[in-house]
Structures are given as structure tokens and as C-alpha cells.
């Protein structure tokens, strides 16, 4: 973009819908702790496509946020990527030096965090924070960058951006702060947007507004969106494909409708059964017994063995690999559920 009067976010001509933007293959992330090295993300693979939303679904501690941070290069100093590749638009990010990475991935990858109040700096105006991307990556003057910041604020639906550009984050409501964070993430017209629980802190009516904004941005600029969430209903409504994570591993992937319509991994099935929507009031939910293993106590063999109703000896000995299971679907289970396999219902 040559002049700052141009619209900040337009469809990129170099992107076609459904093209693979991000391909993560065999990603491992280790955390160094006093108790030893923990594997937080183990052999995780997925891809995100232009104009589509991929959901990383899982409960707290399953490694979904750690995966996002590893992709964005924002891991804490105690965590390292120890294996795998992260290919953004044909370039392996892991092979770049930090400086090269900043230059290359900065404009191409945007990330939105859960808690906008802590993600924004309280001592700078939102205008200053929104301008930063233009000043660093496009070397614009403060004045020109501010004009772009105002445009960006208007683009994400913040009313009266001219007068609000000099306000501080605490002067905005939760929904507006999340809009500002989204504006920062899409400022440089990236190819990939990672949204880490973007609406968890918000009320449902505001959540609906924010998800609509993300959908609109995705459609107009062919963004590839990685939505990280624990909310199954949000995945059902917003995502095209889903990768279900458990204890640092991806256990099932596929198109959302198919995965939710006929889950093949017992964990996916258990999650769906835990949603209090499909049983009568007062009836018991089919909850999953127990709780996920702690990272330093992940067993050999299948990660889900301690809670799985289908567990057999082989599950305790050999960890099942993520294998293709029908068109576009993968599952990591020795006894992948099929419609013929009904044992779970009698447990």
C-alpha cells in the first residue's frame, strides 16, 4: 500500500481461497521446569487455509495456546520448539533468525489474545499502540500512522474513532478493547490470524458481535483463521475444520460437521456428551470420569487411556498415531469409533 488514504484492509490478490497458508508438521514444544523437561505439545500437525477457520479445540492445559504461541514465535523463555516445522506461506519460520522472522512473520501473522486489558499497554493511548505496526513495518511518520490507526478503528467498528484514538485502553469497554486488539492484529493485512480464546472474557451478545467482525474480516481479505477455544458450540458455528487436542496431542481432526456429527475418538465423543444440551433436565450428563493427566505424568501409550471406556492393553503400551480415517479426517485411536462400535453407549 503506497498511500495512507488507501483502505487498510482489502482482499489480497496474491491469495486464493482455500490455499494452504499455514502448515504445521510434527511440532514439539518442551518446557524446562525444576522437575525436568515437560512435553507440552507433542507431534502436532495441522494446516490453515485462506478464507477458512480452523479450530484448535481442547480443555485447559491441553497445549492449544502453547501451540499458538509456538507458531507465532511468542513462547516464554522456558519453552522451546524442539521439533517439527511451521511453514507460513512457503517459508519455514523455524529456519529464520529472530530478526528475519520479525520482518517476515510480523506483517503476515496476526494474533488476538483472550484478555484485551492485559494484552494492551495501559500507559499508551490506543492510537499509539495501533500506529506501532505502521511505524515499524512501513516506516510511516507518526502523523501518517495515526491516520491509518483511525481508519483501522473505523474498520473494526469503533464509533467516533477520531475522538477516541487518543483514549487509553481502560477507557474502552471489554468488547471495544477486543476490537482494538483485532485491529492491531489485522493492521498489516496478514495472511494468518490466530485468535486465542478471543471472546471467552466477553458476554454472549458482545461475543456475537466480535465473531461477526472476525467472520467479516476473514471473508473480505481471505484470511486464514486459527480459532483457539474450549467452546464446542463456538466451533460448531464458526469453524470449517477442527483439531481436537488432549494432553499436548492432537487426537482427532476433520471437517467440523463430520467430527461433531460422528466423532471417532472417544475423547471427542465424551466432550460432546458433556454438553448439557441434549439430555432432559435433571437427567445425568455422560461426563468423562477423572481429569486430564498432569504434564509430568503423561503415560506411555495412549494419552487418554486413564479416562477411556474402551481402553485395552495395547493402549497402555503403544501410543496410537494420527491416521487417516475417511476423507479429510484423522484420528489417533486404536479403536476409532465407528457407527458399528457402540460400546461407549453402555458404559
Amino acid at each position: 500500500m503506497s498511500t495512507h488514504t488507501q483502505s487498510v484492509s482489502t482482499a489480497r490478490e496474491d491469495l486464493t481461497e482455500n490455499e494452504v497458508v499455514l502448515r504445521v508438521t510434527g511440532l514439539d514444544v518442551d518446557i524446562r521446569t525444576p522437575k525436568g523437561v515437560l512435553r507440552a505439545v507433542n507431534n502436532v500437525s495441522f494446516e490453515a487455509r485462506a478464507g477458512r477457520t480452523l479450530a484448535l479445540l481442547g480443555e485447559s492445559g491441553c497445549g492449544k495456546s502453547m501451540t499458538a504461541k509456538a507458531v507465532a514465535g511468542l513462547l516464554d523463555p522456558v519453552a522451546d520448539v524442539t521439533g517439527g516445522t511451521v511453514v507460513l506461506n512457503g517459508t519455514d519460520l523455524a529456519a529464520l533468525s529472530p530478526k528475519q522472522r520479525l520482518k517476515y512473520a510480523g506483517p503476515e501473522l496476526g494474533i488476538v489474545f483472550q484478555d484485551a486489558l492485559t494484552a494492551l499497554n495501559p500507559v499508551y493511548t490506543v492510537g499509539t499502540q495501533l500506529s506501532e505496526a505502521f511505524r515499524i513495518h512501513q516506516k510511516l511518520s507518526a502523523k501518517a500512522a495515526k491516520v491509518k490507526a483511525i481508519e483501522l478503528m473505523r474498520h473494526v467498528g469503533i464509533p467516533e474513532p477520531e475522538s477516541r484514538v487518543d483514549s487509553f485502553p481502560h477507557q474502552f469497554s471489554g468488547g471495544m478493547r477486543q476490537r482494538i486488539l483485532i485491529a492491531m492484529a489485522v493492521a498489516l493485512n496478514p495472511r494468518l490470524l490466530i485468535a486465542d480464546e478471543p471472546t471467552t472474557a466477553l458476554d454472549v451478545t458482545v461475543q456475537a458481535q466480535i465473531m461477526k467482525l472476525l467472520r467479516d474480516l476473514r471473508t473480505e481479505s481471505h484470511l486464514a483463521v486459527v480459532l483457539i477455544t474450549h467452546d464446542l458450540a463456538l466451533v460448531a458455528e464458526e469453524a470449517d475444520t477442527v483439531a481436537v487436542m488432549y494432553a499436548g496431542n492432537v487426537v482427532e481432526t476433520g471437517p467440523v460437521r463430520e467430527v461433531f456429527g460422528s466423532p471417532k475418538h472417544p475423547y471427542t465423543r465424551g466432550l460432546l456428551d458433556s454438553v448439557p444440551a441434549d439430555v432432559g433436565r435433571g437427567a445425568d450428563l455422560n461426563s468423562i470420569a477423572g481429569s486430564p493427566p498432569e504434564l509430568h505424568r503423561i503415560p506411555e501409550g495412549c494419552v487418554y487411556q486413564s479416562r477411556c471406556p474402551l481402553v485395552q492393553d495395547v493402549c497402555r503400551a503403544i501410543r496410537p498415531a494420527l491416521e487417516a480415517e475417511g476423507a479429510g479426517r484423522t484420528v489417533a485411536c486404536h479403536f476409532a469409533l465407528t457407527t458399528a462400535n457402540k460400546e461407549l453407549d453402555h458404559v
Partner: peptide
Amino acid sequence: LDLSVQAQ
């Protein structure tokens, strides 16, 4: 609480 624990 997480979904599976919430159900419990």
C-alpha cells in the same frame, strides 16, 4: 471448570 469436569 472444563467441560468434562463441569458435567461431573
